[in-house]
């Protein structure tokens, strides 16, 4: 079937199978930041934002995204740069495989919680696994990003 997707404000007409998952469609369209991890909705690595909600693209049928706004890390630009710098400064961007989805998850979290507490951050991001870091550095990086996100500083 042919569907129309809005990815990072770009409109794509694309042919998909009925049972094709959004992860595969996005990669086919060139959004290679979207990665496959477990492929069972367990690791969070494939997460993208759809209408400001965090969605596991490995288990989300492509046709269901029609008429919705999909956001991947490629569409985040300035936010992605700042979050990336905060993660790097804490030494938690190691293999980097989890980073694109973590950046998107932080972005959607901050759409829903203006100033999340430590508990809220942990609860929101617990489904985004990272094999390398140990998470404490993530928490420090997120807090630093929350301080600088509204100004031009690093």
């Amino acid at each position: 079937m042919e569907i129309t997707l809005n990815v990072n404000h770009n409109i794509h007409k694309v042919l998909v199978e009925s049972d094709e998952m959004l992860l595969d469609t996005l990669r086919k369209l060139g959004y290679k930041s979207v990665k496959k991890g477990c492929d069972t909705t367990t690791c969070g690595i494939c997460s993208v934002s759809i209408d400001d909600e965090l969605i596991p693209s490995c288990s989300y049928l492509s046709y269901r995204a029609e008429g919705k706004k999909i956001l991947t890390v490629e569409g985040l630009k300035e936010d992605a740069r700042k979050i990336g710098e905060a993660l790097t400064a804490e030494g938690v961007e190691q293999c980097g495989y989890c980073s694109p989805s973590l950046v998107v998850a932080i972005h959607t979290m901050l759409k829903q919680y203006e100033d999340p507490s430590d508990e809220e951050i942990k609860h929101y991001l617990v489904g985004n696994l990272c094999r390398c870091s140990g998470y404490e550095g993530h928490n420090r990086a997120i807090k630093h990003y929350m301080e600088v996100r509204h100004d031009g500083s690093k």
Binding site: T41, T42, G44, L54
Partner: peptide, 12 residues
């Protein structure tokens, strides 16, 4: 429902 995997799964 709070401990079921993560927010992304719980959204679907």
């Amino acid at each position: 429902v709070k401990h079921i995997v993560g927010v992304a799964l719980r959204n679907i």
